[in-house]
Write a protein that binds this DNA or RNA. Sequence first.
DNA 1: TTCCAGGCGTATC
DNA 2: GATACGCATGGA
Length: 269
Amino acid sequence: MDYKIDGKDILLHQADFALDDTLDCGQAFRWEKVSENAYHGAFLNKQLTISCENGSDLFRLHNTTESDFLNVWKDYLDLDTDYAEIKRRLSEDETLSKACAFAGGIRILKQDSWEALSSFIISQNNNIPRIKGIIGRLCEHYGGYPSAEQMKDETVESLSYLRSGFRAKYLVDAISKVLSGEIDFKAIRSLPLDEARNILMTIKGVGPKVADCALLFGFYRLDAFPKDVWVKRVLSLWYPGGLPACTKGLEGIAQQYLFHYIRSQKPAE
DNA sequence: TTCCAGGCGTATC
DNA sequence: GATACGCATGGA
């Protein structure tokens, strides 16, 4: 990763990174494609437009500061991790090798814990366009993604404008458990995966899959392996005997390459 | 009209 | 512990 300042922008050279792969692969729900080579989105209360110069490894972070780049976006976009090395390891497996080649620009975003947890509560038994719609209405209402504290007075009724269906009561339970301290993000960070998962699953509407998504995308737990309907297809089609050994410790990253890859396959296969 | 979507709670065995 | 079913909403 090397960068330079160009007026109000940051110009970044970055290998193993593609905007479509990373920002539109189902790990985050509020990046919007604003042109062929550009996305607009946000992390916490900071917004960003990022574009790519014609499929190259040259990116432009528009209208930002060197300080925000170094303190916020560099970490959020996981630019310090060597994905070339990760892909080399995973590519010991033939199918994963294809998946890495198909979407070699995926990076795991280091998202906000509450946003990831609540977003994946909304995601259950739902499709990505509708998930984006619900989260879009939530952010429009609050002028950005609301914290659990900001949502403290929400009820199933007050959330009806989201049209999130049966998931509204799960959001209300998550808000209350986070605000009461019953769910302590700081504590979860230091726990083994199984214990962290079990604590998250005390929230109504949080089962194994939502808990693993929250841990992978909201706590950067790369060994969490969310099994949604697509990944269950991956396992039954390609890995009936379980994941190959080369994924050890990187199950979550492997999951993301495989998720993106199988979604691109025609149903006929 | 029916089926499905980055699942989970509940009932039942 | 496993299996079956309902669940809000909206697009295909």
